[in-house]
Design a protein around this nucleic acid. Structure first.
Lengths: 348, 348
DNA sequence: TACTGCTATTGACACGTTTCAATTGAGCTG
DNA sequence: CAGCTCAATTGAAACGTGTCAATAGCAGTA
């Protein structure tokens, strides 16, 4: 109503060609292989492009070439700071390679993941970086059959013969956390886990047990496992009841959480019951999200190179898209323990 | 190498038509206006689609129809929890309307914003939800001239005659924070701001001043403003020096932060200097991101209906895309003060 | 039977680009 | 000047879909 209603009639490569006095093919060459066209005509075409304010139509482009220049990124939860950092890395690396990222969110839901993969197929994206909900790769193989390659993120247990992957050594992370707690004199440790269906949770727990075992502590006896429904602060806060169940005598000396969000929720729950870390219980998290350094006391946690993981995944994908592949690659990053205030030596 | 190399040859609408013994046009109708085709043939076509595992090619589709069914979402910072919540809302609403969202990140950088808008134009997206870096709408008008409408998010100061917008009443939020502090007996208040170029910061400050003024306090005298470079925890932590500058006598009784992240950083900085909220200084944040409830003490903050804002913006955009528009709409949400532990009455 | 009014289906064209074989033209050689 | 080479440019044919005027089929009516 208010603004002028004159929507410019769309200007295409042909209009540019007409204006510059060349054929459409030449304009296309200026756009895609400038070295093939003589300087004089190139300048003329570029001038026409500017004057007409031409912007190219990627639909036509993709249709003809059969392939888009954008890639998909499918994450488990856009609101989780861990994933957003990864996304940042993927995006930066993609931008440098001249690709655009289409971010999709499965919200840990298998049906949504399926819909998202289908969407990527419809768009004929060049490739995808995927953090799958579970270990079932049939949908992913379906995608590959359509000529769309992918790189797996944080799913170390999927066979390396199926595709490239980037992950962090969850076992080593669990070991690092375990050793730290042992050095502080803790023996009765609780593992506050997310869904044990997630490989990350299982492997971190296994690492913790290894660390205890190597110190001659019977892991079966001294590690209690509490499974929660999701890797969220809400779950952590609810989990506190079970952590404290059994009364003060059976109270764990330390809690290792599968995730920083669980740990933050747990810390809050403890606070509400008049307990605090590290005074009453030592608490260790996993991921090292930004807020881990902001809470008081600071959260001791196993840091993952989130941004770098994202970059690496996108780099792997780019390599597979550019060159012919020499088999699949698998990258394994090492986590690093960051000691802050939420852990302390055990007081007899 | 390892997996079978047989990438299926692409199957199109024509293959489906051949298999079902109908014309391509009919297949297209089954896909887009099923009601126009007889039940028997529809079933036959659907069977062929299933058997051939046909998935449609959105490039061809968009090229022909001149418009894509996906919309763009341009945010200031993907790693900011406030924006990710908004994104969630946009995405959910879009999914219900059968649209897909392309998430782009300007990282508060004007050049990146420009590149992103251009990208959306190249993709011929149907529309966009945008949180612009600054008040300059020329790039946005450029987009609209190309026939791509948009809805503004959290930019209340851009004229309502230019486009639809969704925002939260920042002035009211500032007033709410101010009144709360006054009721607690605070008079010497510092406003820890992000870049004052951001309208959000300026208006929240104005609200704070109004609240003081209505209690007969001279806002010019009693409000000190500290401008930081960004709305991040790092900035907040650095800002603590300036907050405390002037020694204990001039120390503010309370600090109102433009953002929860600034507030969290500030709280950390205070802790490192042996001070704490609310004992030494009351602290109020803005946004009510998830962690605000998790830190100890809990952060008193002005809550925004983040998810709802996102949904509303997408709903507005959908309306503009579906029906012919009856002028632009402007939605204003009311913020709500959430009192937690970081504020307390002033001790003489 | 001839005609009308439907609905269901068809077939050809257009969308904007890339690609590639074919053409032009200029410069060089003998 | 004929013959050749090589770079620059052209023109037309796709790519996979949606659209729409045209057609076929069929039942009902006069």
């Amino acid at each position: 109503m208010s603004s002028t209603e004159n929507v410019k009639r769309p200007v295409g490569i042909n209009d540019v060609a007409a204006r510059a006095g060349v054929s459409p093919g030449t304009v296309s060459n200026v756009l895609n292989r400038p070295e093939r066209v003589a300087e004089a005509t190139r300048l003329r075409v570029e001038k026409a492009i500017r004057e007409l304010d031409y912007v190219r139509n990627s639909s036509g482009r993709n249709l003809r070439s059969g392939r888009s220049d954008s890639v998909g990124l499918l994450v488990l939860d856009v609101t989780n700071p861990f994933f957003t950092m990864v996304a940042q890395g993927v995006e930066d690396e993609a931008a440098e390679a001249g690709r655009t990222v289409m971010l999709l969110n499965s919200a840990e839901d298998l049906a949504r993941q399926r819909r998202s993969l289908r969407l990527l197929a419809e768009q004929r994206v060049a490739g995808a970086v995927v953090m799958p909900v579970d270990n079932d790769v049939t949908d992913l193989m379906w995608l590959r059959d359509r000529g769309i390659p992918w790189v797996l993120l944080d799913r170390g247990d999927v066979g390396a013969d199926l595709g490239s992957s980037v992950c962090v050594d969850n076992h080593a992370g669990g070991v690092a956390a375990g050793r730290h707690l042992i050095n502080l004199g803790h023996e009765r440790v609780t593992f506050l886990s997310g869904p044990l269906g997630l490989e990350q949770c299982r492997t971190r727990l296994a690492g913790l047990r290894s660390a205890l075992a190597e110190s001659g502590i019977d892991a079966e006896d001294s590690v209690r496992v509490i499974e929660t429904g999701s890797l969220t602060a809400a779950s952590g806060e609810k989990g506190v009841e079970e952590v404290l169940a059994g009364g003060p005598r059976r109270r764990p000396q330390a809690v290792f959480c599968a995730n920083d969000q669980l740990a933050l929720g747990l810390l809050k729950g403890l606070g509400e019951r008049g307990l605090s870390a590290p005074h009453d219980i030592s608490v260790v998290g996993y991921d090292d999200i930004d807020v881990a350094a902001l809470v008081h006391p600071g959260l001791t946690t196993v840091a993952q190179p989130k941004y770098e993981i994202g970059r690496a995944a996108m780099r792997l994908l780019s390599a597979e898209l550019d060159g012919p592949r020499h088999g699949y690659e698998r990258m394994l990053f090492a986590p690093e323990l960051v000691v802050r205030g939420s852990t302390a030596a055990y007081r007899d």
